[in-house]
């Protein structure tokens, strides 16, 4: 796994974690505008990164989350435990 792909994967993981944290915060503070804006920024940026990753390296999540080009490469991608973070 080349370092560029690993870095992109790491950024996606970090942003997903931030989205989870902001979701939890907003669950208990639904009326606050600032965290809501941050949440929207993070999700937008996260989807951009995911789209970029999937264009270059194939689907991140299978089972209908995103289309795959030919040939089917889901089985070729490294398993999570094969990735040295």
């Amino acid at each position: 796994m080349d370092s560029r792909r690993l870095q992109l994967l790491h950024d996606i993981m970090a942003l997903e974690f931030v989205a989870i944290e902001l979701t939890l915060y907003l669950d208990t503070h639904p009326t606050e505008q600032e965290p809501l804006n941050d949440y929207n920024l993070v999700t937008e940026r996260l989807n951009q990164l995911k789209a970029q990753y999937e264009r270059m390296y194939g689907p991140l999540v299978s089972y209908g989350f995103s289309p795959s080009e030919y040939p089917w490469r889901w089985i070729e991608d490294p398993w999570p435990w094969e990735i040295q973070f």
Binding site: A14, F17, Y25, H29
Partner: peptide, 21 residues
């Protein structure tokens, strides 16, 4: 006590430290 929304860690640091706050 209610939590106030203030400074947050950068995404990479938040992932490292296990919290955004």
């Amino acid at each position: 006590p209610p939590q106030r929304y203030g400074r947050t860690y950068s995404p990479a640091e938040a992932l490292e430290k296990g919290t955004l706050f």
